[in-house]
Design a protein around this nucleic acid. Structure first.
Length: 233
DNA sequence: GCGACAG
DNA sequence: ATCTTGTCGC
């Protein structure tokens, strides 16, 4: 099924689709050298079906932006906890297809296998685009965990049904941890290491943080001011 | 039945 | 996620 058809699915059918995706999950060591890291984020306007998406490609571990693709489309699928991918992946995939550079690994804003059916947005996108992915979420969806220590890079495993599904990672002292879990074609240990390497001065790792800033900047460029909105893009 | 609930 | 100013902490 194509991403553009997701909006035709009812929640129950989306869950069935996830059960199929679950059979294809591939969590393994990534042996290729990582030189390019990508990140995606989406943004919305309240009460609107418009959805804005940005995918950025950064050099690794330098964290310099090498490419950016911004797109604006529409979404009918509502936000439902556990079914986030059906709302956001279509737009991210549109942007992905327009990239000149393809990253060695992509970071998605949300969970990887740290999901009730192990099919968070990072797993979903990784299988769709056939690219290694990591889920880096700002909050927990499923799984239990002990609060990690308060020193930088202290971590604590996320457990669900006797499985380690991710790690709560303290990227900055006195800041809430981020929740890291592998999505596709990479393992948890490598996922954590890559996220650590992408952290600079902020709680959120650079690729995701920049994608977030860029997509909001892109969205705001469409705000009411018909007189100049064309000259901006 | 009640509480939890990525973005 | 979005709506929003000042404000506390490093």
């Amino acid at each position: 099924m194509r991403p553009s058809e997701y909006e035709t699915l009812r929640p129950e059918q989306a869950i069935d689709f996830q059960q199929e995706l679950r059979k294809k999950i591939c969590i393994q060591h990534l042996s290729t050298e990582i030189r390019l890291v990508g990140a995606a984020d989406v943004s919305f306007n309240k009460y609107s079906d418009d959805i804005f998406a940005v995918v950025v490609i950064l050099s690794y571990p330098d964290m310099k932006i090498l490419e950016k693709v911004s797109i604006k489309t529409a979404t009918k699928f509502p936000y439902i906890s556990g079914l986030l991918a059906f709302r956001e992946v279509p737009a991210v995939y549109d942007a992905w297809m327009q990239l000149q550079l393809k990253p060695d690994v992509m970071i998605l804003d949300g969970q990887g296998i740290a999901h009730e059916r192990r099919t968070g947005i990072a797993v979903h996108f990784g299988l769709l685009a056939n690219v290694p992915t990591i889920g880096c979420a700002k909050s927990r969806l499923s799984g239990r965990y002990e609060e990690p220590g308060n020193k930088q890079f202290d971590e604590s495993p996320m457990l669900d049904k006797n499985e380690i599904i991710g790690t709560a990672l303290r990227t900055k002292p006195n800041c809430k941890p981020v929740f890291v879990s592998p999505g596709h074609k990479i393992d948890l240990k490598q996922s954590i290491e890559l996220i650590k390497t992408c952290v600079r001065k902020h709680r959120i790792p650079e690729p995701t943080r920049l994608a977030h800033l860029l997509v909001n900047e892109f969205r705001k460029g469409f705000e009411k001011d018909s007189s100049i909105q064309h000259s901006l893009f």
